[in-house]
């Protein structure tokens, strides 16, 4: 069986796959950007694509969205080959690059109207589509504003609205939260959650794993052109050497609190922090889950004022999987 036949056999019967990347390699002059990258993304999934700067994220995205041709390996999007079936793919995807790519001298409405017409929608259809995407991105009050006059967060929303104009099945977002303030990030993530609920497949790249942890169903971690991990986000958490860590904040100081917490079922370690009322609790996720742990802690009768996941272990997972060094 030839290499191509083997690839064909692998991809057959994968109708639930939105993106299928196999043995992808790409070189720019003397720099090898990708070296045998393979991963799959299921339909209606929110997939994180994480890696440090220069890992090959943008190159992979450009190969998926047909802007680049693979030098070796294969990319299929909804079973369409990115080399031979470019237009079929482009009709079904929406790509948001990592830089602002907008006609800033247009108004928001003109910008969306232009792309609506470019996708071949009639005037009446365009009116409906623009109304819908503006509502979804919460930009309906700003449709007559010049894009150049909008804040970065607002411009990112307009960019997302543009991506949605042709109602794509797959959204490819390259670092969409880059440069946004915390509020704009949270709002953007809310919009993405809403889109996932609507049945869209979302492929989102980022260099911050913890940013995507709560959002994504699955994740691919890439470093120096090689995939370090690809699979469910939950499984990634279980793979880390450390147990999940939660930060517990009590309303009052208590000398016996640490001992009481250690006695809770599933808790493997309790660490006091510099703040006397704060504790870091590690637990064995195979023994208990977060809800059960919280319920057990409440049963202790201590005045709990805060309980949140401590993100350090995710960042540690990212550091463990990726290599040191300037890229």
């Amino acid at each position: 069986m030839s290499n191509n036949d083997a690839l064909e056999a692998d991809t057959s019967g994968s109708n639930g796959t939105a993106i299928d990347v196999r043995g992808l390699s790409h070189t720019f002059k003397n720099h090898r950007a990708l070296a045998g990258v393979s991963f799959q993304v299921n339909r209606q999934e929110l997939h994180g694509f994480v890696g440090p700067n220069g890992a090959g994220k943008t190159t992979t995205l450009k190969l998926i969205c047909t802007l680049l041709r693979p030098q070796s390996g294969r990319v299929r999007v909804f079973q369409h080959d990115v080399v031979r079936e470019v237009n079929q793919i482009r009709k079904r995807i929406g790509f948001m690059p990592d830089h602002f790519s907008m006609y800033r001298q247009m108004t928001v409405f003109e910008y969306l109207d232009f792309f609506g017409a470019a996708y071949g929608f009639r005037l009446s259809e365009r009116n409906r589509i623009i109304k819908d995407v503006l509502e979804l991105t919460d930009m309906d009050g700003r449709k007559d504003d010049l894009i150049s006059g909008l804040s970065r967060g607002m411009q990112q929303r307009v960019s997302l609205a543009r991506v949605l104009v042709n109602d794509p099945d797959l959204l490819l977002l390259d670092e969409p939260a880059s440069g946004l303030d915390p509020r704009a990030r949270i709002e953007l993530m809310e919009i993405l959650r809403e889109l996932r609920r609507m049945g869209k497949t979302i492929f989102i790249s980022s260099h911050i794993l913890s940013e995507l942890a709560e959002l994504c169903d699955s994740v691919t971690i890439i470093d120096r052109g090689r995939v370090k991990y690809s699979g469910a986000m939950k499984e990634l958490l279980s793979r880390t050497d450390e147990h999940p860590v939660y930060k517990l904040t009590l309303g009052v100081e208590s000398e016996t609190a640490a001992d009481k917490l250690r006695a809770v079922h599933g808790v493997t370690d309790v660490e006091a922090t510099e703040v006397p009322t704060e504790f870091l609790i590690s637990y064995d996720w195979t023994e208990t889950d977060t809800n059960a742990l919280l319920a057990a802690l409440l049963e202790l009768g201590m005045p709990i004022v805060g309980f949140s996941e401590d993100r350090k272990h995710l960042n540690q997972a990212f550091m463990d999987l990726t290599e040191r060094g300037v890229r």
């Binding site: 969205c65 047909t66 802007l67 790519s101 907008m102 996708y119």
Partner: peptide, 13 residues
């Protein structure tokens, strides 16, 4: 100049 060429080429044209 306004980095819009990439977006244009993503149109099914």
């Amino acid at each position: 100049r306004w980095s819009t060429w990439q977006t244009l080429t993503m149109l099914p044209k």
